[in-house]
Design a protein around this nucleic acid. Structure first.
Length: 267
DNA sequence: AAGATCCTCAACCGCTCCTAC
DNA sequence: AGTAGGAGCGGTTGAGGATCT
C-alpha cells in the first residue's frame, strides 16, 4: 500500500504540489536511493533536518531572494492580523517566500517599530496603527507604482486565489469570485482618523493619545516622527513632489518616518 | 582608521503532531 | 493501544556585514 501526504510544507501548499510519499519504501525507491548514494556517497555530515531546512529556505529553485515588495509586506500585515504568528500559513500566500523569511521580517521590521514606539506589538493599539497608518501607506505606494508601471501584472496566485498584484481594473476585480479584502482596504483610509496637516508635537501627542489609546502611554512621540503632518490622501501628491525615490521594490516603515520628516521640511 | 554597536537573516533547538509498526 | 521516529512549526541564537562614534 502506498500513501501520500497532502500536508503542506512551509513554503508551498498549492494544489499541484508534489505529494510526499509516506509508508513502506518500494523496491524502486530503494534502488534509487542506493544508486544515488553509490554515485555521490553519504557525503555531508549533516542531519536530515538540517538538509531539509537548507533546501526549503535557501536552495529550492523557486525560493525568491531579495527584499519584500510592498505587496508582499501588505499581505504579511494583513494575514498576520488574521492568523497571528502562524508563519507557515502566512507563507502559503506569498509564493517563493519562506516562513523563516516572513518571521524574520516581522521580528526585525514590524516589531522594531513597536519597540521604537514603546508599545507592545501584540497590542490592539499597535494593530490599529498598522491598519490605519502602515497599510494605507503601503496601498498608496502600490497604487503609485502601478501608475508608473501599469504593465506589472501577474497571473501568479495564492492557494485561495488572492492575486499578489493589485488589479488596476475595478470591473475585473468585481468579477473575481475570490475578491481579496486586502484591496478593499483603501476604505481604511476614510475610516481612520484624519490627522491635521498643521500640528505641533504637543498637539500630535494629544491626537495620538485620543485616537490610538496605547496601554502604555510612555511612547516616544519623537520616534513617531512628523508622521501626522499631512493626511494620507496627500501621499501621492507628495510622492510626485519628491520624485520617485521609492521606485525600488522595497519600502518599510522606517522610510515612512523619513519621508514624513522630509515632507514637513518641504512645507 | 578602528573599535563599538546595531541589524539582518540563516540555522539551530525543542516541542507537537502524525504515521508506521 | 502504545511506542518510536520523522516532519513541520514557532521561538531563539549568533555570525557577519553595515553603520555609528
Amino acid at each position: 500500500m502506498e500513501t501520500f501526504s497532502s500536508k503542506s510544507s512551509s513554503s508551498s501548499s498549492s494544489d499541484d504540489d508534489i505529494k510526499l510519499r509516506r509508508g513502506p519504501w518500494t523496491i524502486e525507491e530503494d534502488n534509487l536511493l542506493v544508486h544515488y548514494i553509490t554515485n555521490h556517497g553519504e557525503g555531508l555530515k549533516r542531519t536530515g533536518k538540517s538538509c531539509r531546512l537548507r533546501w526549503l529556505n535557501y536552495l529550492k529553485p523557486d525560493v525568491k531572494r531579495g527584499n519584500l515588495t510592498p505587496q508582499e509586506q501588505l499581505l504579511i500585515l494583513e494575514f498576520h492580523s488574521k492568523l497571528g504568528n502562524r508563519w507557515s500559513k502566512i507563507a502559503q500566500y506569498l509564493p517563493g517566500r519562506t516562513d523563516n523569511e516572513i518571521k524574520n521580517y516581522w521580528r526585525t521590521r514590524v516589531q522594531k517599530q513597536a519597540r521604537n514606539l514603546k508599545i507592545d506589538s501584540n497590542s490592539a493599539a499597535f494593530q490599529e496603527m498598522i491598519r490605519c497608518l502602515w497599510i494605507p501607506r503601503l496601498l498608496q505606494k502600490i497604487h503609485s507604482s502601478s501608475v508608473i508601471q501599469p504593465s506589472i501584472q501577474s497571473s501568479r496566485s495564492t492557494p485561495q486565489g488572492f492575486s499578489l498584484e493589485k488589479n488596476n481594473s475595478s470591473s475585473s476585480r468585481s468579477s473575481s469570485s475570490h475578491s481579496s479584502s486586502i484591496y478593499e482596504s483603501p476604505n481604511i483610509i476614510s475610516e481612520c482618523p484624519k490627522i491635521p496637516r498643521e500640528i505641533g508635537d504637543s498637539d500630535l501627542n494629544s491626537f495620538v493619545k485620543a485616537h490610538f489609546p496605547f496601554d502604555d502611554n510612555s511612547y516616544d512621540i519623537n520616534n513617531f516622527g512628523q508622521l501626522a503632518t499631512g493626511n494620507f490622501n496627500d501621499v501621492m501628491e507628495y510622492d510626485q513632489m519628491i520624485g520617485d525615490v521609492l521606485a525600488d521594490s522595497f519600502w518599510s516603515m522606517d522610510e515612512f518616518f523619513y519621508q514624513t520628516q522630509d515632507m514637513s521640511n518641504c512645507k
